[in-house]
Amino acid sequence: MTQQELDNLSRLPTVTYEQFLKFKPCWLNDRKRAAQLKEIGSRKREWNALDVLRLEEVTIADRMWAVLREEFLPAHLLHEYACRCADYALSKIDNPDPRSVRAIEAKRKWLRGEISNKELITARNEARAASWSIGWGAARAAAWGAARDAAWGAARDAAWGAARDAARKDILDTLISLIKEAARDAGTSTSGKQKLSAVIVTKKEREING
């Protein structure tokens, strides 16, 4: 990576160990794991998403649980990650249900401001119907998750759905690649669009959730 890209990565949101404890990780319920968490937390004052994702002594599931939240990543990146997880899951099956495909397309249109909240909800409900009518398969679960309006929920549901049939390492690598891609775009004309997208997404989420 270039020095500029490294500088952009250094500006990722950060979380301290004390702030992380407020997420109530399940490790706190086990004395040994709580001690391990405390030791990890002592290594740095502040952690960004990539710092956490590189902790190989922690399971991929736990690393993903930790960072798939807006304290670590902006809403528009979480939504795009959800779409990529769903794309990945659907690529693993033959003849994916059109309703699942449309749900992902709808989410990306919603992120660009091309469709209304109501249209997104309709696409999400259709994807949910597809998952129930044919069985809760990984790809359909991921597509329905991606269509959710809440950023953290969409990202987690899509990631867990995709990981049912795919290696979790692939899902982890997808997120790392997305973060690095955002770092490359920072400071370009795309950066301004991303910042505007983040504002729009937050506003849209509030409208849907009241």
Rank of each mutant, 00 (worst) to 15 (best):
M1L: 10
M1K: 07
T2Q: 10
Q3A: 14
Q4N: 10
Q4P: 00
E5L: 02
N8Q: 13
L9N: 04
L12G: 03
L12M: 12
L12R: 06
L12K: 00
V15S: 01
T16S: 15
E18Y: 09
Q19R: 12
Q19S: 14
L21Q: 13
L21P: 08
F23I: 04
K24N: 14
P25N: 08
L28E: 11
L28I: 13
R31H: 11
R31E: 13
R31C: 01
A34T: 06
L37C: 07
E39Y: 10
E39H: 12
I40G: 00
I40V: 12
I40D: 06
G41Y: 04
K44F: 09
R45Y: 05
R45L: 14
W47I: 02
A49W: 02
V52D: 07
V52Y: 07
L53K: 05
R54Q: 15
L55C: 07
E56L: 06
I60R: 01
I60Y: 00
D62K: 11
R63C: 08
M64G: 02
W65P: 02
V67L: 05
R69Q: 13
R69A: 11
E70A: 02
E70Q: 14
E71D: 14
P74M: 00
L77F: 06
L77V: 08
L77N: 03
L78P: 05
L78G: 03
L78T: 13
L78S: 04
E80I: 04
R84G: 01
D87P: 05
Y88F: 15
A89M: 07
A89L: 07
S91G: 12
K92C: 14
D94Q: 15
N95F: 11
P96L: 09
P96S: 08
D97Q: 09
P98Y: 00
S100A: 14
A103P: 08
R108H: 06
R108L: 12
R108D: 09
L111F: 03
R112I: 01
S116G: 09
S116I: 00
N117H: 10
L120S: 02
R124N: 10
N125I: 05
E126P: 02
A127E: 03
R128S: 08
R128Q: 11
A129K: 13
A130N: 11
S131R: 13
W132Q: 09
S133T: 13
G137I: 06
A138I: 01
A141F: 05
A143K: 06
W144N: 07
W144Q: 10
W144L: 00
W144K: 04
G145K: 02
R148D: 13
R148M: 13
A150H: 14
W152L: 01
G153T: 13
A155T: 04
R156E: 07
A158E: 04
W160I: 15
G161L: 04
A162K: 01
A163F: 02
D165L: 08
D165N: 15
A167I: 02
R168F: 11
D170I: 09
A186D: 07
T188V: 07
T188A: 05
S189D: 15
S189R: 11
T190M: 12
T190K: 12
S191E: 14
G192D: 14
K193C: 01
Q194V: 01
K195Y: 11
L196F: 08
A198Y: 05
V199A: 14
V201R: 09
V201Y: 00
T202M: 13
K203I: 14
K203C: 00
K203G: 03
E205M: 15
E205F: 00
I208P: 02
I208H: 06
G210S: 15
G210A: 12
G210V: 00
